[in-house]
Structure formats: C-alpha cells, structure tokens
Design a protein around this nucleic acid. Structure first.
Length: 548
RNA sequence: GCGCCCGUAGCUCAAUCGGAUAGAGCAACAGCCUUCUAAGCUGUAGGUUACUGGUUCGAUUCCAGUCGGGCGUACCA
C-alpha cells in the first residue's frame, strides 16, 4: 500500500514540478488522521516558497487514486496529507495470514545474505549468571529477527579456555579436591568460590580417589573443570532455547598463526611499537582515543585486544554481509579500540554492528539484589529460570530498548497474575485457542456454505476493522524491528495486538450458532490473530500456550 | 577530569525520518462476569518530556551548556 501511494504521489509531484523529494509516511497516532500520513507538503514549503496547505492541495488535485484502495484523502493540520485506506483492503489480510501461516511476516529483502551473530561468549570458568541474561536473550531474539528478513544466520560463541582465568579454575578445583582429603588445605585467595567447583572436585575424587593428592596436574584439572563448566553453560542455554552453530575457540587463532600474522602486519604498517618490553597499539587522538593501548604484555602474553582483532578479521574474511556483536556497556569502550585496529589493518569494519546494552539492576520489590563475581552469592541464570520460568526471563530481558538501564523486578516477573506483562500476551493467545476449541465443539459439523472471501466482508464493526489493521502491520513491524536490532518493538506491537483482540472479544460474541456466517467470519479473524501471536512469540523465543 | 549511555505520569517504560492533543502497564479511584478464559474490558485522575538557551513551519527527538544517575577510563576480559 505504501508503494502504491508512493508511486501515485510521485506522479502527482512531477505534475507540479517537484519530483526530487523522498516520500515518507507516518502512521498517525490518532485514527481521525487516517491510516497513513504524508508530510511532503511541509518539506516542500521552503523550496517552493508556498504555504504548505496550498502545496498539499495542489498535490491532492493531481492525485488519481483507486477508490477501492483509498476511500478518502484529506488535508489537515499544518499541511499533512492523510489517506484513509478502504476496509476492503484490510480485510484481505485475513486470507493472506491463513495462507502464509508460519511464514506471515517473513520478508526476503536480505535473502541470499549471510549474517554472523556472536554473543554471550562467556569463558568456561563458571555457570552463566544473571548478568549474562540480557545479552543472551537479546541475541536470541535478534538472530531470529534477522532470519525473518531473509538472512542466513550463523550463531556464534567465542570463548577462551587458555589464559590465567583457566589456570585459576584448575587451581580452584585442585584445592577443593585436596580439601576433601585434607579439610585444612588452603584455598587460593582469588579462587573461584562457586559451589560448582566443589562439585567438579567431588566428581574427580569419586573417580580417582586420592591418587592425585599432592601433585597438581594443571592440565588435567583444567580440562575437567572446563568440560564440566561448559556443560553447565550449554545446559542453561538449552533451557532458554539458545543454540549456537559455531563455538569459536580463541586458542585456534594462536595455533593457526593468525595472531603472529596480525602482529607482523601491525608492525609492518607501523601501527604498533615496542616500549618497556610490551607491544603498544598506536591510537590516534584525533579519532577520539586518549592513549595508546598495550596489545602484548611484557610477559609476552597478548591482552584481549590482539586476539579480538584477529577474531574480527577472521569473521570479515569468512565473507559475512553483516557481523553483529552484543555486549554490555562495561565493554563499551573496548570494542572501539578493537575496531580501530581492524580498520587500520585495512579491513572493512563497516559490516560490523555492535550492540551495546546497558546494565541490569535486579531487585526484589524495593530491595536491590547485589551481585558480585568474587562472592559465592552469584545469582545464576539457572536460578533465575527456576524462579520465574524461561518465558518470563526472555520477555523481561528484551522488553525494553537495549540502551536504557533495565530494572528487573524479580518479584514482579515471578508473579503469576495480571500484574505480569508476559501473561497479558500469552493469555490473549490462549484465549484465541479457547474460542477455537469452543467453536469446534458447538459448531462441529455446521460449516458455512459461504466463500471465505465473502465471509470476511462481514467484518465491518469498528473493533473488527481495528484488529484487522493491527494484524496487517505485522510484516513491517518485523522489518522495522530487525533493521534497528530492537526486538522490544515486537513486544510493543504484540501488546497492541492483544489490546485490540481483547476489546474485540469483549464486545462481540464470536461463536454463535444462530448467526452462522458471522460466526465463521469471526472465527477466521480469531485464527489469523492466533497465527500472528504465534509468529511474534516465535521471533521472541517465548512459548505460545494453548491454555492458561 | 575525560569518553560512552541515560534522565518522559507516584513506579517500570513506549513514542518510526523532527510531526498533529506525548502513550501503555503497575499503583489509586469508579464501573462490568446466569453467555466463547475477569490472567480480561470500560471510564476517571495523573506531565513545564531534569534545567537553560539554540536550530525551524514544527523539538521528547537535532546542537551547545548546566545538573543528576550508570558504565568505562589496566601490561584484567
């Protein structure tokens, strides 16, 4: 419909000699301003040196619109041109939804393109905690959104099982193991204190007895720790329906020489220099960087920046059309340094889209929940799922835009009542299912003899038309949401859909054996609504319960 | 100090590219169940969009400054 109007408007514009402007539409907030609104007259006012309303009138006079599509055109306010789209056009959305079913809302403007989404990427030193939750849920929804617009998406997890933190894990496990044998054995000050470490130690003791006593076999304890921890992480992801296609191990960048190569390239292009025994990346103050950054420590170990650069270069070389990274604002500055290095090495970093989400504050009622990595009182993601369920976790984490601080009220999320926004949507879906069950029961063999295309013509009450309009908007909402990487827009949309549906339900009897054709037309509307809820939930990664 | 993000109703948050009277939910108040799920619906009240300037037909949105909050400012990741 937008394309149709755009076409007609540009014809009209060329008639009045102003065809060089991009035509855009708004959906007015208020129904009395029509279904679509164009502001071109105001934009042209300056150029043509004419009052906007006069220009709008000239444009409308030159418009030739099909009355079957557009029932009314009017000029309002400062010079808005408002279009009223015919109800018939909206009614067609019902058979379309029913035909496309699970594909309604999918588009193809990114078909043939490859996207890579990397997220979570926690190192295997412990289970995921609630701090990982927001990125986890955002990534899941965004990867789905990208797929809905046609991308072939590779879901990737980047991790490092080398380095100090893993040595720390090995030592922590060993200490717990020794404590089984000698309760007074000293635990390292910086060690991982989580209960899972004791569990790993107990498993080892169960299998090996005290045969490992006294000799710290680092590699063995490390690999046992890693195996166990990664299983914990994967199990949690599995509970949330998150599946990665690629687990990219940082150490592969060392073994295949990529790191060495990157260092050589940096030196060759004079982007890095040695000082105080360390290798420094030269940063340009004019591009907003304060000081140079160390990429190889004087100990010879690289800082995270070097492998991160190498990793992103690797992703670029793999030929993705879009590369998305998601992380928290505590990493907000570091990615810029990494991308800076990638760019200076001559790679096109413009394909890389970084999504930064702000931190999450958890609270129970009015009390905030403090979480510290160094204490054993870490609130794990698993516990959160246990407490409030996977759907609510997913929903609460993506309910708000990523760059606003999220206030996560665990008490509210736990509540199985009307206070909880998750249930508002799921209830609406369950209600459509209930109605359809009822229809089957009471209308069992009474099929309508009327054709589907004639049945939908009976949908003419304001509540019905309103619902039709909302249903028809779903595909463009998906595109908007995907293009801006903002899944919360889908939630806002579904809220509107639920609202329209509940109102329709409340004011109209749907299953009515006395009014067979009307019943069947409304059942079609119900089915279409149910389908759109389901598709929206699929994108978000939330279940669509049939009963509640 | 500097950099990034944020500041919208009592609370949690929306608001498409700068659009018309800034919207939802919760909390408050008043109504609606002998009929398909009341986890719902209808209505009332609630705002100087932190503040001050600027840009323009028009600013919650863009720019500058002030105040307030979060994160970062490592030879940690």
């Amino acid at each position: 419909m937008k394309n149709y109007l755009r076409q007609k408007l540009s014809e009209a514009l060329s008639n009045i000699g102003a065809d060089k402007i991009e035509i855009q539409f708004d959906i007015p907030k208020d129904e009395k301003f029509g279904d679509l609104s164009a502001n071109i007259a105001m934009l042209l006012a300056k150029e043509l040196k004419l009052p906007p309303r006069k220009i709008a009138q000239d444009i409308v006079d030159n418009l030739k619109l099909d009355p079957a599509k557009v029932s009314k055109t009017e000029i309002a306010g400062a010079g808005f041109i408002n279009f009223f789209i015919s109800d018939d056009h909206y009614r067609k959305v019902v058979p379309e939804i029913l035909k496309l079913a699970d594909d309604y809302g999918k588009s193809s403007h990114n078909t043939g393109k490859n996207a890579n989404l990397e997220w979570i990427s926690a190192n295997p030193t412990g289970p995921l905690h609630t701090g990982h939750g927001r990125a986890a849920c955002l990534g899941k929804a965004i990867s789905n959104l990208l797929e809905w617009t046609g991308y072939n998406v590779t879901r990737e997890y980047y991790y490092n099982d080398a380095g100090n933190q893993m040595n720390n894990l090995a030592l922590s496990v060993y200490s717990r193991y020794m404590q089984i044998i000698e309760p007074d054995y000293e635990f390292p000050e910086e060690g991982y204190v989580g209960g899972y470490v004791k569990e790993i130690a107990a498993n080892i003791y169960h299998e090996k007895g005290d045969s490992l006593k006294g000799k710290f076999d680092k590699d063995y304890f490390k690999s046992e720790g890693e195996k166990f921890t990664f299983e914990l992480i994967k199990a949690t992801l599995d509970r949330m329906g998150i599946k990665h296609d690629v687990f990219f191990n940082e150490s592969s960048l060392y073994s295949d020489g990529t790191i060495e190569k990157t260092i050589d390239d940096l030196k060759e292009k004079s982007l890095a220099y040695e000082q105080d025994g360390a290798l420094w990346l030269k940063m340009n103050p004019e591009e907003g960087f304060q000081k140079d950054k160390v990429i190889v420590k004087s100990s010879g170990e690289p800082t995270y920046r070097l492998p991160d650069m190498a990793y992103h270069i690797d992703k670029i070389k793999r030929g993705f059309d879009l590369i998305v990274d998601i992380f928290g604002s505590d990493h907000g500055d570091t990615y810029k340094e990494v991308l800076y290095g990638v760019k200076k090495l001559g790679f096109d970093e413009s394909k890389i889209k970084v999504i930064i989400h702000q931190m999450v504050t958890f609270r129970v009622g009015n009390e905030s929940v403090k979480m510290s990595k160094r204490s054993d009182k870490v609130y794990s993601l698993d516990e959160l799922i246990d407490d409030i369920g996977s759907d609510a976790v997913q929903f609460f984490f993506i309910m708000r835009g990523a760059n606003t601080h999220l206030d996560f009220d665990i008490e509210l999320a736990k509540e199985r009542s009307d206070k909880n926004p998750v249930y508002y949507l799921q209830y609406a879906h369950a209600r459509t299912c209930g109605i359809l069950r009822n229809a089957e029961e009471h209308l069992n063999d009474i099929a309508s003899s009327t054709d589907e295309n004639d049945l939908i013509k009976l949908l003419e009450k304001p509540d019905e038309v309103r619902l039709l309009k909302v249903l028809g908007r779903f595909p463009e909402e998906v595109v908007n949401s995907a293009d801006s990487f903002e899944p919360h827009k889908i939630i806002n949309y579904l809220n509107e859909l639920a609202e329209s549906f509940h109102r329709f339900y409340h004011n109209n009897r749907i299953v009515d054996a006395e009014n067979l054709d009307l019943s069947h037309s409304r059942i079609l509307l119900c089915k279409a609504t149910k389908q759109v809820f389901k598709n929206g939930f699929d994108i978000l990664g939330v279940s669509a319960p049939e009963r509640m």
